[in-house]
Amino acid sequence: MPDKDIILEVKNLSKVFDKEVLNIKKLSFRRGKVYGIIGPSGSGKSTFLRLVNLLELPTKGKIYFKGEDISMNGRTDIPARREMTLVFQKPLLFRTSVEENIAYGLKARRFTKEEIKARVETLLEKVGLRDFAGRHAGTLSGGEAQRVALARAVAFEPALLLMDEPTANLDPSNVELIERLIMDLNRNTDMTIVMVTHNIFQARRVAQDVIFLHEGRIVEMGATEKMFTSPQDPRTRAFVDGRMIF
């Protein structure tokens, strides 16, 4: 019997481009928790998210979403996709209004006009862009754009929210705003959030569990505080210590 609380599980997941960039024996994610994936660049963090969201197909291995194998047959157009989403480091906003951007996923899911309007309004309020509904997406700053992208991603209340370095290159006030939004989501919904970050402080502030990837493999994983206070693996220690100097 699969554990109902496990929303996502991967087994023997491998991705080979020119060489193998990811190889994970087993990893599971529980409903309602925030996970941080940390590790140096090139460690396979982004590839992992892209595999889970089926933007890439695994070379080998299985991905289970709510107990269902979604990696089968190379099919990428399956209902499970609609229950998860991925926010990129550099958000791409459609060349329409802010409102239309946020409504995109809702329209794809055939929400009613009233429902869409209500949700867009609430979300704009939450991301601090109340008067931006009619603005063209092309006129937004980087931070505003990322906030719109986040609002767009959570509008349809996915069960799994994947984020790839969502606050890289943003100024501190925008970073704070986005982190607060993530914590809000964690408190008020049972969304599972997986956030790739190179910023270990951020992982420590936001995530309950942390996974440390190195050269495509899991070096260490566990509760955040434990990882930071008493890392077991020397590589984790080096990574954590190296950053802790300043």
């Binding site: 969201n53 989403t85 990129f88 791409l92 459609f94 995109y104 996923g105 794809a108 899911r109 767009r152």
Partner: peptide
Amino acid sequence: KDVQETARTLGAGR
């Protein structure tokens, strides 16, 4: 390519 991926992450069909 970026538009395609964004649309897909947001649950758009083919």
